[in-house]
Simulated assay, not measured.
Amino acid sequence: MEAILKDPSGAVIGLDFDGTLSPIVADPAAARVHPDAPAVLAELGAYVNAVAIVTGRPVATALELGPGLERVPGLVVLGHYGFERWENGRISGPPPPAGVPRVEAELPLLLDSLGLLGVTIEDKGRAVAVHTRRSADPEGALAKLREPMAELAAKHGLVVEPGRLVLELRPPGMDKGHALSLFLAERDARSVLFAGDDLGDLAAFDAVRASELPGVTVCSGSAEVTALADRADIVVDGPDGVVALLRELTSAFSRS
């Protein structure tokens, strides 16, 4: 953290969305960014090299669930683990792979064959996610799904990304770590902070270490996932804690 405080103009601040800037909810479509996050990010962005949200969500969905983010000066949103990018009001990215709609068409039959009730399918454009949070036995349903989902992913040239009571099938070749590494190089970063909450953020934590830059990893803590907390430099209490930490950073910059 010392390098970021001494040289904020060289710092890149990377942030996951769900569970980090937005509280986890039973229905992913009902998620909303922390009400204070857009203002805090706008203040933070005035001091640092760049602020980037790195999420598995499509860019358009992250912006829809994050009212006010589109007005944060200089903000970059890397969606679909980096396959999509939003900057200066424009979205860029390749077309979705053919395997995604094929998987989505087969998933209802798979869920029915396993007798899983309350499990929901989320169309993410370039990926498809299966959530077990609303089932009677979320952990049991997740365990039942792991092997057949892996087989379905392999059949259609996709990979499985595990999360907090969710399994996501997405194209290979990009993850949050790779997306963050490319962004750090692009911005000639001299330090980096990344905050996340879930297993999909481990790759970004690894990228912070591999960058050989002065780096800080932050876990938005929860009782559901402990693997990230074990690897983090700082653990805070959910999105409230993340926003509070970013606000403290901004206050420190303003005093220096």
Results as ranks from 00 to 15, higher is better:
Pro101Thr: 04
Pro95Glu: 12
Leu228Tyr: 02
Leu202Val: 15
Pro58Glu: 07
Pro58His: 10
Ala11Asn: 05
Thr61Ser: 11
Leu180Thr: 06
Leu165Gln: 09
Ser256Glu: 14
Gly118Phe: 09
Arg255Ala: 15
Gly200Asp: 09
Val166Arg: 01
Asp18Cys: 07
Ala129His: 04
Ala195Cys: 15
Glu104His: 14
Gly238Thr: 10
Leu199Asp: 07
Ala195Met: 05
Leu109Asn: 13
Ile13His: 00
Val218Glu: 03
Ser113Trp: 04
Ala185His: 13
Ala127Ile: 01
Phe183Leu: 13
Leu109Pro: 07
Val225Met: 10
Leu110Trp: 09
Ala154Tyr: 02
Gly215Thr: 02
Glu43Asn: 08
Phe17Asn: 00
Ile91Thr: 15
Asp197Trp: 02
Arg170Asn: 09
Ile91Ser: 00
Gly56Ile: 04
Asp237Asn: 14
Ala153Asp: 08
Pro38Glu: 11
Val103His: 10
Glu186Arg: 14
Ala11Asp: 05
Pro171His: 06
Ile91Lys: 01
Thr226Cys: 09
Gly196His: 03
Ser256Gln: 13
Gly19Asp: 03
Ala31Gly: 07
Pro73Phe: 07
Ala52Pro: 01
Ile13Tyr: 01
Pro67Ile: 14
His34Phe: 13
Ala223Leu: 14
Leu41Ile: 05
Ala195Glu: 04
Ala154Asn: 10
Leu75Arg: 00
Gly200Glu: 07
Pro23Asp: 10
Ser220Ala: 15
Glu122Val: 07
Ala62Gln: 05
Leu152Val: 08
Pro23Cys: 10
Arg102Thr: 06
Val100Phe: 08
Thr20Arg: 01
Leu180Trp: 04
Val218Arg: 02
Glu139Phe: 13
Pro108Asn: 11
Pro73Met: 10
Asp7Pro: 01
Arg187Pro: 00
Leu63His: 00
Leu21Lys: 00
Gly66Phe: 01
Ser222Val: 11
Ser191Val: 01
